[in-house]
Design a protein around this nucleic acid. Structure first.
Length: 484
RNA sequence: GCCCCCAUCGUCUAGUCUGGCCCAGGACGCCAGCCUUUCAAGCUGGAAAUCAAGGGUUCGAAUCCCUUUGGGGGCACCA
């Protein structure tokens, strides 16, 4: 099996696009086939130079490796369509020679006028075939004027074109509903239809798995394969990914580009798992499937037909699952890498990895994304904390009793060595009984003293990781804040 | 306007081919409880779908047939 991902470098690919790439990749890996990346850069106007790099970076982030394509090459290259123009020209010339295509010199103005008239008359928009009867002399005159004609495919007439789509079953079209479409543009570049069909054949693609938006141009492709004397590949039109309003996903729906999700602190493994479940499922219960489980179980038979809304709440949940499945060291590594990508304001970089590895298990169950790591861990790194007296003073207490409790705590820390969480808890529990405070009162004020926040990871584990000196500093700071 | 695709909880989906195990299962989210020094996590429970609607076929239909409605995609010298 040979499948391909054929992005056009007009910008950063969005998640729908990448989901299609993922399904192709999964199918290739599942069947021990080949996954090919081919860049469809035939539109010179919309071309974005850095786009190819962004596309490949996205694939690498998700660890979707390609067997042939940019950077890795392969026996069917080049894999950039802009480097294959001769192939398209030759094929177009052959189609013209055999009467399947013809030159067209109609101006954009005439085509626009034609469409306007057609919509006025409530007829189907489409080229009327005027240039089918173009004479050699007219063509020559056009060229002498410094113009380059386009080439149109002479669409077959009075036929039923059908495809046996892998996910949709059989679909039929009346060939008369498709007009004579352009296959070579006036700038000499092929249109998608020609380039795509030719390359899929030349690269021996066996299965074309693409989004449903392509379904309606499939009759053109099949007609093209026919005129070229080629056997079409198998087609499978995948459901689309939709915005919350159920329309085709686009920029106006907010974050749609794949790499934005990396920037928002999502793990690539949760992206892969989540996207795989958009339009595919294993069974009636399995939600968590890592890449190897996906490769093992993916099948086109279980792809659904209807479009799916990208539900970020579920992604967030799944990201939490994957974060919790990491070892503390691995999580610390992810956080460090993420901070390298977008440095947090309150935490000096580079960060002490040994320390971060001890912090990691404390925040692990509390993270939804890697973004959360900064605010959750900031107090571990800060030198002077800003204690808010009103947060320090608990219900049923006043500044004086709070200060007294902190003084006692400070004394307790002062006499002890570095202690583990369990020993700390025992010691402070004894102190609490002596002070006749409730657990809520005492541990809450201690928590605020230690972290300058009412919310934190478990208190004594936090204190253990911070170490005696930092704890002493913080309690001292808290006492100072109460006085000021 | 024309062509094509699709239709199960708010969302992702299982079940549809091979009618009965489905007065519809799971997950996210939501609500409640438990755990608990905070916040999470975890555990338990709950609300949530007249299976888009209507008509058939059948002893029996989410599943088969017909019609309707709704949604989406496409109709470029864009992909």
């Amino acid at each position: 099996m040979r499948v391909r991902y054929a992005p056009s470098p007009t910008g950063l690919p969005h998640v729908g696009n990448v989901r299609t790439a993922l399904f192709n990749w999964l199918f290739a890996r599942r069947t021990n086939g080949a996954f090919i990346v081919r860049v469809e850069d035939t539109d010179q106007n919309r071309l974005v130079r850095e786009a190819v790099a962004g596309i490949l970076e996205g694939l690498r982030w998700l660890d979707l490796d390609w067997d042939e394509g940019p950077e890795v090459g392969g026996p069917y290259g080049p894999y950039m369509q802009s480097e294959r123009l001769d192939i398209y020209h030759e094929a177009a010339a052959d189609l013209i020679r055999r009467g399947h295509a013809y030159y067209c010199i109609c101006s954009p103005e005439r085509l626009k006028e034609l469409r306007k008239q057609q919509s006025r008359e409530k007829k189907n928009p489409g080229y009327d075939g005027k240039c089918q009867t173009l004479s050699e002399r007219e063509l020559q005159e056009y060229r002498d004027g410094g113009n380059t004609p386009v080439v149109r495919f002479k669409m077959v007439r009075d036929e039923t074109i059908s495809v046996d789509d892998i996910v949709r079953g059989r679909v039929d079209w009346n060939s008369n509903l498709t007009d004579d479409f352009v296959i070579i543009k006036s700038d000499g570049f092929p249109t998608y239809h020609l380039a795509n069909v030719l390359d899929d054949h030349l690269m021996e693609i066996t299965h074309v798995l693409r989004a449903e938006e392509w379904l309606s141009s499939t009759p053109r492709h099949i007609a093209l394969y026919g005129a070229l004397g080629l056997k079409p590949p198998q087609f499978g039109h995948l459901p689309m990914i939709l915005g919350p309003d159920r329309s085709k996903l686009s920029k106006r729906h907010g974050s749609t580009a794949l790499l934005e999700y990396r920037d928002m602190g999502y793990l690539p493994e949760s992206m892969v798992n989540f996207m795989a479940l958009l339009g595919w499922s294993l069974d009636d219960r399995t939600e968590i499937l890592d890449r190897s489980a996906l490769v093992e179980s993916f099948s086109l038979e279980r792809v659904v037909k209807s479009g799916a809304i990208f539900n970020i709440d579920k992604l967030e949940w799944m990201n939490g699952i994957y974060i919790r499945s990491l070892s503390p060291e691995a999580l610390a590594g992810r956080i460090r890498d993420y901070w390298q990508l977008s440095p947090p304001t309150g935490i000096p970089q580079p960060v002490d990895m040994a320390y971060l590895c001890r912090i990691a298990p404390l925040i692990q169950p509390r993270l939804k994304t890697l973004v959360d790591a900064a605010e959750r861990t900031e107090f571990f790194f800060k030198v002077g904390l800003d204690h808010v007296p009103k947060d320090l003073i608990q219900k049923g207490m006043d500044a004086e009793s709070t200060r007294a409790a902190l003084e006692e705590s400070l004394a307790l820390m002062g006499i002890s060595d570095e202690l583990g969480a369990d020993r700390l808890e025992e010691a402070f529990e004894d102190l609490r009984l002596k002070l006749e405070l409730s657990r809520r009162q005492f541990f809450s004020l201690l928590r605020v003293a230690i972290t300058a926040s009412r919310v934190s990871p478990p208190l004594f584990e936090t204190m253990e990781v911070l170490g005696r000196d930092r704890c002493v500093d913080r309690i001292t700071g808290a006492i100072g804040a109460l006085r000021g």
